[in-house]
């Protein structure tokens, strides 16, 4: 074999283990659940290979599933907006602060290292019947009996914001950090107020980071089932909880496949729209 041919083959040898893994552990399984979603479930034993639209019909026409899907998108939307409002100023502060760089960097990455399940359950210590807030209220004499503040839609959103805020801060920071501060100075020296310079120069330039953070918050928020299970009540199920119910509790795998694919299509469409207009580069920057 010629030297050139060997050179050309080398990268494929290096890539093949990872590509094989992604193919057989992601793409083939995804195709498989497409097929599976047309099978029929049997109450006793193995599911029956078939080509039936029964599961899809149930997933698409049952108002129960539709309402929960819409509610899931609503919760993810509110979460994303709250994350943006809370996270943008914080990211701006970290990007523009002069001072201890290592400490500011730690502020960016430390929240990612604290376990998701622990951050989620930590709110029980704060808002639970025997939590910090109730203890304070009772001791201040503001209330006789502890108030149940947990297990509703608001606490689900609270838990999601707490979990996803770091993704927003990091992405906005990456975007702000790449903006030349001379641009803002130029705007102010040309007569713009600081606020105008921010609104017309910095904010538009940081929109890609805001969009990347927003996409991550929305997609991760809409795909969770743990937060509603820990901080939500029985009526606060999100769409991923339906998938969990169908697969783990009811063992109705064909229906579970159809529901999973519905979630994938809705959230995948968002990723594709984002990719079409903004490209993956910004998202990758924030993750790396």
């Amino acid at each position: 074999m010629s030297v050139e041919a060997r050179e050309a083959r080398q990268p494929w040898i290096l890539l093949s283990p990872a590509l094989t893994a992604v193919t057989f552990l992601l793409f083939v399984p995804l195709l498989f659940i497409v097929v599976y979603s047309f099978w029929l479930s049997s109450a006793t034993g193995a599911d029956i290979p078939a080509f039936s639209f029964e599961n899809w019909e149930e997933a698409l026409t049952d108002p129960f599933y539709r309402d929960i899907l819409l509610n899931t998108l609503k919760i993810a939307g509110i979460t994303t907006i709250v994350c943006a409002l809370m996270g943008y100023p914080a990211a701006y502060f970290i990007a523009r602060a002069r001072g201890n760089k290592a400490f500011l960097l730690l502020l960016l990455i430390l929240p990612f290292w604290i376990s998701y399940i622990i951050r989620t359950m930590s709110w029980i210590n704060i808002l639970g019947v025997s939590g910090a807030v109730n203890w304070l209220l009772v001791n201040l004499g503001l209330t006789e009996e502890p108030i149940q503040m947990l297990y509703n839609e608001t606490t689900v959103i609270l838990g999601l914001v707490h979990f996803l805020l770091p993704f927003m801060v990091l992405n906005v920071f990456v975007s702000l950090d790449g903006i030349d501060t001379n641009l803002e100075d130029a705007a102010t020296s040309l007569g713009a107020t600081k606020w105008q310079a921010f609104l017309q120069v910095t904010l538009p330039l940081s929109l890609p980071g805001l969009a990347a953070g927003g996409l991550l918050c929305f997609v991760l928020g809409a795909g969770t089932y743990i937060t509603p299970m820990v901080l939500g009540g029985p009526r606060d199920a999100m769409f991923a909880n339906l998938v969990y119910e169908a697969i783990i509790t009811q063992l109705n795998w064909p229906l579970g496949s159809a529901l999973s694919l519905m979630l994938l299509i809705v959230l995948g469409a968002l990723v594709l729209i984002y990719n079409r207009y903004l490209g993956m580069a910004q998202l990758v920057k924030g993750l790396g």
């Binding site: 890539l15 990872a18 590509l19 992604v22 552990l25 992601l26 793409f27 083939v28 399984p29 995804l30 498989f32 659940i33 599976y36 997609v219 809409a222 795909g223 969770t224 089932y225 991923a240 998938v243 969990y244 697969i247 795998w253 579970g256 496949s257 999973s260 694919l261 979630l263 994938l264 959230l267 995948g268 990723v271 993956m280 990758v284 993750l287």
Partner: peptide
């Protein structure tokens, strides 16, 4: 394109990845 393929596992919601892998390996 190869990079996008390789990072695809985090572009797919984790629940969906979980279901797909569970059902396929079980098969």
């Amino acid at each position: 394109m190869i990079t996008t393929l390789l990072i695809a596992p985090i572009l797919v919601p984790e629940v969906v990845l979980a279901v797909a892998l569970l059902l396929f390996l079980n098969f």
